[in-house]
Amino acid sequence: VTTYKLVINGKTLKGETTTKAVDAETAEKAFKQYANDNGVDGVWTYDDATKTFTVTEMV
């Protein structure tokens, strides 16, 4: 189990959260659900070296 981080660069919501998951795919599903629940829709990137997902909403 690995800890993954999500950085949110939203128009109205900004911040970070973490989740523990067995792999990046599982973490991504959890983060996308979290973003969807919070009304964040944007471009996703993932950095495997730092285990960090970033979602950026276009203005």
Rank of each mutant, 00 (worst) to 15 (best):
T2R: 08
V7C: 06
A49Y: 09
D37H: 10
A35G: 03
W44I: 03
T26H: 11
N36M: 13
F53L: 01
M58P: 12
T50Q: 07
T12C: 12
N36D: 06
E57R: 03
K14I: 09
A27K: 00
K11D: 05
D41Y: 15
N38K: 15
E16W: 15
K29D: 05
N9W: 13
M58S: 10
D41T: 15
K32D: 02
E16P: 03
A27Q: 01
T56D: 10
D41R: 14
T26Q: 12
A21W: 03
K32S: 04
T50R: 06
N38P: 01
T18F: 14
F31Y: 02
A35W: 03
T18R: 05
G39C: 07
T12I: 12
E16I: 10
N38T: 07
N38Y: 11
Y46Q: 01
T18A: 07
Y34L: 05
N9L: 14
E28D: 04
A35S: 05
K11Q: 11
M58F: 14
E16R: 07
A35I: 07
E57M: 06
T18S: 12
A24K: 14
V59H: 12
G15F: 14
V43M: 10
F53H: 02
T3M: 11
A27G: 02
K32Q: 08
N38L: 12
A49G: 06
A35N: 04
L13F: 15
A27R: 00
T12H: 15
E28I: 11
T12P: 04
T19G: 04
A49E: 13
F31W: 02
D37Q: 12
T50P: 02
N36P: 01
T50I: 07
T45P: 00
V43T: 10
D37C: 09
E28R: 13
Y46P: 00
T54H: 06
D37G: 05
E25N: 10
W44D: 00
V7R: 07
A21M: 03
E25V: 11
N36R: 14
K51D: 03
N38V: 14
T12F: 13
L6N: 01
N9E: 09
L6D: 00
V1H: 10
A30R: 05
F31A: 02
K32L: 07
K5I: 12
K5V: 10
K51R: 13
V1N: 13
K5W: 09
A35H: 01
N9D: 10
Q33K: 13
N38R: 14
A27D: 00
V55G: 00
Q33W: 05
T54Y: 10
L6K: 00
Y4N: 00
E28F: 15
K51E: 04
V40A: 03
D48L: 07
A49N: 08
V43R: 08
T17A: 14
T3H: 06
F31G: 00
V43Q: 09
E25I: 12
V59W: 13
G10E: 03
T54G: 03
D23R: 04
T18L: 08
D41V: 15
A49L: 09
Q33G: 05
N36Q: 09
F31Q: 00
K20E: 15
K20T: 15
Y4S: 00
N36A: 14
L6T: 01
Y46R: 02
T56Q: 07
T19L: 13
D37Y: 08
L6A: 02
N36K: 15
T56A: 05
K20N: 15
K11L: 14
V1G: 08
K51I: 03
D23C: 05
T19E: 05
D37S: 11
F31L: 05
E57I: 10
V40E: 02
A27L: 01
T54E: 04
F31E: 00
K29L: 12
A27Y: 00
T2K: 07
G15P: 05
K14T: 11
F53W: 06
V22S: 12
T19I: 12
I8C: 04
V40D: 01
K11V: 12
V55K: 01
A27T: 01
T18E: 15
D48I: 12
W44R: 00
V1R: 06
E57F: 06
F31N: 00
A21F: 05
Y34H: 04
K5F: 13
Y46W: 03
T2P: 06
K14R: 12
A24M: 14
Q33Y: 05
K32N: 04
K11R: 15
G15D: 12
T3S: 07
N38G: 04
K20D: 15
G10S: 11
V1F: 13
N38Q: 14
G10K: 04
V7P: 00
N9C: 11
T26E: 10
N38W: 12
T17I: 14
Y4F: 12
W44N: 00
I8L: 09
T12M: 09
A30H: 13
M58I: 14
G10F: 14
E57D: 09
A21K: 03
F53N: 00
A27F: 01
V55A: 03
L13P: 04
V22Q: 10
G10M: 15
T52W: 02
A24R: 13
V40G: 02
V43A: 09
T52P: 00
T45E: 10
N36V: 12
T56M: 05
A35C: 10
G10Q: 05
K14Q: 09
T12E: 10
L6F: 06
A30L: 15
N38E: 08
Y46S: 01
D48S: 12
V1E: 15
M58G: 11
D48V: 10
T50W: 04
M58H: 13
K20G: 07
Y4D: 00
E16V: 12
V22L: 14
V7I: 12
G10D: 03
L13H: 10
A30N: 09
E28L: 15
Y4E: 00
Y4K: 00
G39R: 07
N36W: 14
D48Q: 12
V22F: 13
G10C: 12
K11H: 12
T54I: 06
G39T: 04
L6R: 00
F53Y: 06
G10N: 06
I8R: 01
K51P: 00
N38D: 03
T52D: 01
A24H: 12
A24G: 04
A27S: 02
Q33L: 12
T2S: 11
G15I: 15
D48W: 06
Y46A: 01
V59M: 13
Y34F: 09
T17M: 13
K29N: 06
